[in-house]
Design a protein around this nucleic acid. Structure first.
Lengths: 237, 237, 237, 237
DNA sequence: AATGAATGAGGGTTCATTCAT
DNA sequence: AATGAATGAACCCTCATTCAT
């Protein structure tokens, strides 16, 4: 697929758009959305200031396109992971690693852009609903939901899980882990760190119900009772 | 204590400072850091623009003061919770509720301000170390650590916990929960939602009952005994 | 050359730059650097305030450009004077008149701008070395040095002159003369006034050594003695 | 005199005024008039901002007071020099050294303040006439005039001097010398440098010896006589 | 006489966006 | 399609000066 894309050269127009996106992505990651001017982006993309606005109607729109692109990548990677034959624990691990990797790229561009977008374009958290951002987010989060639900169908985890809570813990935990990794410049230990964050969730998903030992003992008793009963009947017979 | 403070009127100067902080807090929450001008803040606080800068040397400084204040509140509330005689599960629940409550106030001001501060004042995640923000964060996060460690000492949870991972899951999960609550305008269910996020963590932290292996062993033996018995009967028949 | 330049109309961009420089020059001369706002300059140049900063990155930079321009003019005029076939006294007179003329233009703009530039951009006299201002000054002052040195080669003035001191007297004297002319609104007498300032310098440059009359009398005596001796020899022969 | 002044302690009010002047003088010299705020001056003088304006009605007025003070000192020193029994060359040297010393103090404060004052308070050179600055300047320059006129009365210099031109050369030359000394950090050679600037002026002022024409006439006659004599001898031989 | 909080007009500068070329 | 000069409102911040205490 990549090869085919590489073979067919992009049209001049598509190439320009890609140049702009790349330049903007790099600069936003380096300096932050508000510190980067459209002038800088145009210069870095090798075009004039006016041309930029032929491709993206506004600076915000450009930001939106970048976010969309990253979400698209996140989702594609995640879907690919789900397509492979893997046990659910491994799936979660890979999903998490993908999430961290994409999110931490370009100096945590993604995390910062989301915040900027919410503040600049949405004016806070209250207007997320129905926004493009929300749709992208939903369509991506759906992959996690699928992984959990399939784990349930396979019997790898409990049936009575609060999916919403797990989702918040999963993505929130990873976002914080990402900050922690930045803080300690510890991206070389990413895999283990991710595992140590996913593990508690995994444990909680398959945790024995506290009532289970009692149930088991009761079941034993019932079996024993039945066995005794059978023995008596056999004795009679 | 709060009462006494409320009774004794603030000095004119302290009152002004409080007015400015309140106005800025409100406006930042409503419109975001970058959309609020110092003019607006001054007007909203009922002072001239110049006066604002007699109290806070810059807009960034004002933002820092607000963040500091909120962190202070977070930590005080959290410390108060730790001082009470409570079981660890309840502690975590209360800590989480406090976190969500403060964080979600003023249209999620706190979450948004931290992002703004990191981008404006620190230029991203890479320079957090040693910053005021980092110190405040550490001193607050320390409360969670204490709660977990005391739970371990009391034998309420396992000894082999990855504290860092739990911390990321706890605070990250709550941040995402906060977004979820905004999304669904579901703050009236805050307590249950918090519980459903804390519960998986709690389950993963809990020691399996020490008696469980023995009980399982005995149950196995009982079932096996029944099995042998039934097999013999079957053989006879 | 100038004619050709005048014939070929400037590009729009070059014209704008010239307009700004002219407007700024006029206003700075009229009201002083600190009293003139970029707003006023823009209005006077018939452009918007933003446009001004497309041509000059700051108000200081604009000032620097004006200074550079005037220095350029000073040096070109001075070089032209040196290229003509003139006796050294006339050269000095013309150099001085050129200096006064350029310096006094626009309400002594040049003198005032240099002061402003030193205070604003350099923060005093201590940091002049190596600055653009210093280089311009050196390259201009070099013309005076050349005139004096050529006068020495031509034998028009003494060989043992302190060039540095003469330079200070020449330019310093002219600066003060300029102030004096302003004071007495006496620019119609500029030429004579300049002459009366240059004259003492010129006199000191060719001043007779005080010992010269004595040497002449001694020389006379030696000639007379030789003459007497020859007479006696002639008498004997 | 100084002792008496020192013995009688200044009134609190006079002390305050002196403190302010000293602080302002120091700061203006260090950072320039426009860079120093009244706040800084007040702080440096150990008083509150409001109090400053009880002593000087405005920042400009404070600047004026400083200039006045320095002019007063210049004039007093100069007058003291004239009161001593000295030959005129030495007088000029001492006047020049005094001028340079006072002018160069505090990072050339005096030169810079005059420029600032003219631009800020007078709006250029055109309105100097009748200003306080002009009066101070006249009363100081008068000392130089006196020195020259007395030199003429004593017969030490020519009668036909252009006093105005000499004044411009003297003070202008010294001002430029001052810049030169700053430039080369050469204040340890101040005395010689001053001498080399004063010397050309002195040479131009000096009367040629009144006997010189007669002596040249006689020398010519003697050489001509010898020449005739030798010519006759040559004719005989 | 001394304070210092309050002022508010105005400073230089920025920058997303437009539009004539 | 591409340009880049022009815009102008708005930005944060300064500071000499005032005046109630």
């Amino acid at each position: 697929m990549t090869d085919v894309a590489a073979q067919r050269p992009l049209s001049r127009s598509a190439q320009r758009e890609a140049d702009i996106l790349e330049a903007a992505t790099h600069l936003f990651g380096e300096q932050g959305f508000h510190s980067v001017t459209t002038r800088k982006i145009a210069a870095s993309a090798g075009i004039s200031e006016g041309t930029l606005f032929n491709y993206f109607s506004s600076k915000n729109e450009l930001m939106r396109a970048i976010l969309e692109r990253i979400y698209e990548e996140l989702r594609e990677n995640a879907s690919a992971i789900l397509r492979e034959e893997l046990d659910s624990r491994t799936r979660l691990q890979l999903l998490a690693e993908n999430h961290i990797q994409v999110m931490s790229r370009d100096n945590a561009l993604f995390m910062r852009m989301i915040q900027a977008y919410m503040n600049v374009d949405l004016g806070g958290y209250t207007r997320i609903r129905g926004s493009v951002l929300h749709k992208l987010n939903l369509s991506y989060a759906w992959v996690f939901d699928t992984a959990v639900q399939e784990a349930q169908q396979r019997g790898e985890v409990r049936d009575d899980l609060n999916l919403s809570a797990l989702r918040d813990l999963f993505f929130g935990g990873l976002e914080y882990l990402s900050r922690t990794l930045f803080l300690h410049a510890a991206f070389d230990q990413m895999s283990e760190r991710v595992s140590s964050v996913v593990e508690p969730l995994w444990q909680s998903m398959q945790a024995l119900s506290p009532a289970l030992p009692d149930r088991l003992e009761q079941a034993c008793e019932r079996v024993e009772a039945v066995a005794r009963q059978l023995e008596q009947q056999a004795g009679k017979a």
